[in-house]
Design a protein around this nucleic acid. Structure first.
Length: 348
DNA sequence: AAGCCGGGGGT
DNA sequence: ACCCCAGGCTT
């Protein structure tokens, strides 16, 4: 039996029941694909349900504020996905008459829709014979066909895309694509793959050559950068604090955080005092207290953020203050959300 | 081609 | 500590 047929048979017997598999609505397919970029099904699933509750149609999403979209996205990471999702919802609604494009090249023009996602929507929602190549597919194909080309090199990406197209079943693209990805997620896993029970174990090149553990080949990984964050948590006598919005570069664009002092190394208390003096001239520094002596290390995939929170008690009423009760309306990074929880516990 | 962009879970 | 996840965008 052929590769694609075995994948589809395996899929029919082993597939998970997932909400976006019970629909051909391109809006829902698109939403699920954006959310699942670099994200596990288990992590993305609750967000998918949440978004459909708040935005049943693409128009509902288009008419929402970016702040609300980011708030609902909070915790899922890679926030440019949320901003692009919102922008594309508006494009579909206001420029495309609420109708999704149904071909690969047209889909790929949408913000946040790259090669993978355009292929996924074209095949799953519209039955186009477009092969998808995601992290699962790289792994399965490199092992089964014994391909040692680095999957994240330009040459490798072209090769695997071509290979995926050659071995796909164009008549059953939707099922084949989803089956191949599901197979990678559940059977041909990164570590401890289920080769013993694999329906392809009599023809898998990597298994025959004992190279399952070495495939797929990937090019290096970038180094982790250390950063030192000091957040000034202003608190006035009315229980107001202050947030500021992060700008158009770097991490957490458009999300909110407390006023930030960043430094190359861990700051001495003296330096923080100086910063407070600059910000609030004549301020009584005896009301500044360090919340956590041991920095909280918030780990992103490419940065470690060594973070201290300083509580700054403000006499009277703060300008541009936000009541603590309203803090949860603001989209914030997980690092800030976690601190806000403890802040509220200590305050109330 | 390389770097950047989150957060969580598995090993 | 390191790897991976239904990748895409910018430089």
């Amino acid at each position: 039996m052929h590769f694609s047929s075995k994948i589809i048979d395996w899929y029919r017997a082993n597939k998970r029941e997932l909400p976006w598999r019970n629909t051909r609505d391109p809006y829902k397919i698109w939403l699920s694909e954006i959310m699942l970029q670099q994200t596990r099904v288990a992590q993305g699933l609750p967000y998918y349900e949440l978004f459909l509750e708040h935005f049943p149609t693409v128009r509902d999403l288009a008419e929402a504020s970016e702040k609300k979209v980011l708030k609902l996205w909070q915790g899922l990471g890679y926030y440019s996905r949320a901003r692009n999702l919102h922008a594309t919802a508006r494009t579909i609604t206001y420029d495309y008459g609420e109708k999704f494009p149904d071909t690969y090249p047209e889909l790929k023009k949408l913000k946040g829709v790259g090669d993978y996602t355009a292929s996924a929507i074209a095949s799953i929602a519209f039955d186009r014979p477009e092969p998808v190549v995601d992290g699962n597919v790289y792994r399965v194909l490199s092992r089964y066909f014994g391909v040692t080309l680095p999957v994240n090199s330009t040459e490798g990406m072209k090769y695997f895309k071509t290979l995926a197209r050659e071995v796909m079943d164009p008549e059953r693209a939707a099922e084949y694509n989803q089956g191949l990805m599901e197979f990678g997620a559940l059977q041909c896993t990164p570590r401890n793959p289920g080769c013993d029970t694999c329906p392809l174990n009599n023809s898998c090149v990597a298994l025959q050559k004992d190279q399952v553990g070495e495939l797929p080949v990937k090019l290096k990984k970038s180094k982790v950068r250390n950063r030192y964050f000091n957040y000034l948590v202003l608190l006035d006598e009315h229980g107001n604090t202050r947030l500021q919005q992060r700008e158009d570069k770097g991490i957490w664009q458009q999300l909110y955080e407390f006023p930030l002092v960043e430094s190359q190394e861990i700051l001495e208390q003296e330096s923080i005092y100086n910063k407070v003096e600059e910000t609030l001239p004549g301020y009584d520094l005896s009301s500044v207290s360090l919340e956590n002596e041991e920095p909280i290390v918030h780990k992103l995939s490419h940065q470690h953020l060594h973070t201290r929170f300083w509580r700054v008690e403000i006499p009277g009423e703060l300008e541009r203050g936000i009541p603590l009760e309203e803090l949860d309306e603001y989209p914030v990074p997980v690092l800030i959300a976690d601190y806000i929880k403890t802040l509220k516990n200590s305050y109330f």
